[in-house]
Simulated scan of single mutants.
Amino acid sequence: MENSGHIMIDSKELAGKRVLVTGGTKGGMGEAIVKRLTKAGATVITTARSAPDELKDSELFIQVDISTPEGTNKIVEYILERFGGVDILVNNVGGSSTPTGGVLKQTDTDWQRTFDTNLFAAVRLDRGLLPPMIKQGYGVILHITSIQRRFPGENTMAYSAAKAALANYSKALATELAPKGIRINSVAPGFTETKAAERLIERMAQERECDYKNARQALMDSLGGIPIGRTARPEEVAELVAFLVSDRASYIVGAEHTIDGGIVRTL
């Protein structure tokens, strides 16, 4: 057992497990998930569009654009050839770069790119990596959705729609595959202070001519406030993921777990 802050980590809990976490670099949730599952003893492969500055093990990294069919095919081929499949798949990649200004500013290309990244990447990877899981009668797939699917706005409608579709797909897939020994769930994070979020807050601070703290508070207020009074840390999301992919969660199937500090106030 390893003491990581206030959390005791069983360094053997995931020993022998082959794991793929998409988008596991650049100071985001993916990187935190990679570190957490590695500490639990898993062999963790990850992906990103660009290689990290400090690449410790090239065999455990795939440089690829996961939003394209060619990208997901490359991942599947590599995983099957090198590892024979995975036991755990965490579909973490997501995000949106659609322009602001409402629906008339968002083109077919913007919508397609958003759905390719947030929905079809997961669908293609699941389809490619499920056969070995089904054959061995065991597997865990986790989809990272977002509370944003419940808060569609004029500048996030494509992203919100894609994440809503991902949650719906995840539920249906869980029902289909549970009898085959495959557990599928999803995690819906709220405002998590990743490196990307930090850059957004810094830009807001410059635009509003205020400091970082006030810009962060303005962003929290725009969500209706966060009852717990702060943003989430990527490590907190990673801890939930570590639980859900472990055998401790062996009876949890087809559930979406919100981790948002209380932002979502509906049942």
Rank of each mutant, 00 (worst) to 15 (best):
V253L: 07
L177V: 11
I263H: 02
I263G: 07
F61Y: 15
I201S: 03
P234K: 03
A158E: 09
L80G: 07
K35G: 01
S11N: 11
Y251T: 12
L267K: 13
S160G: 09
I182E: 06
I33A: 10
P132K: 03
A238W: 00
E209L: 14
A218S: 11
D247P: 01
R36T: 04
Q148L: 12
A196M: 11
T258Y: 06
L60D: 08
R248S: 09
M1A: 14
M157L: 14
D126A: 14
D53I: 08
S58N: 08
A255W: 02
A42D: 00
V140T: 14
T46D: 02
V90P: 09
C210V: 15
P99S: 08
E59H: 15
L119F: 13
I45M: 15
L80C: 12
M29E: 01
R127Y: 14
F120L: 14
L240D: 03
W111R: 03
I184H: 04
T68E: 07
E2K: 14
S58M: 00
M8G: 10
S11F: 02
G5P: 05
E2R: 13
E202C: 00
A255M: 06
R18N: 12
K163Q: 08
S50W: 02
I147P: 09
R49M: 13
S50H: 14
P52M: 13
T46Y: 02
A40H: 04
E235K: 04
A249T: 02
L125Y: 03
N73H: 12
V44H: 08
D57Q: 12
Q112C: 01
T194F: 02
A255L: 04
T117Y: 07
T98P: 00
F120N: 15
R36Q: 11
G181F: 13
H6F: 13
I7W: 13
E198T: 12
S50E: 14
T145S: 15
Q206H: 14
I79N: 09
Q217D: 05
P52S: 10
P152S: 10
V76M: 10
R149Y: 15
R36P: 01
A255Y: 04
P69Y: 06
I9N: 05
N92A: 05
F115S: 01
G94M: 06
G41M: 10
R82K: 15
L60T: 03
G95I: 05
E198W: 07
N118P: 02
G225C: 04
I259G: 01
G190Y: 07
D53T: 13
T38V: 06
A197F: 00
E202K: 10
L20H: 08
T25G: 02
S97L: 11
A188S: 15
I134P: 05
A164W: 08
R248G: 06
E154N: 12
H143F: 03
K26Y: 06
T258K: 05
N155H: 09
D108P: 08
V34Q: 00
E239G: 14
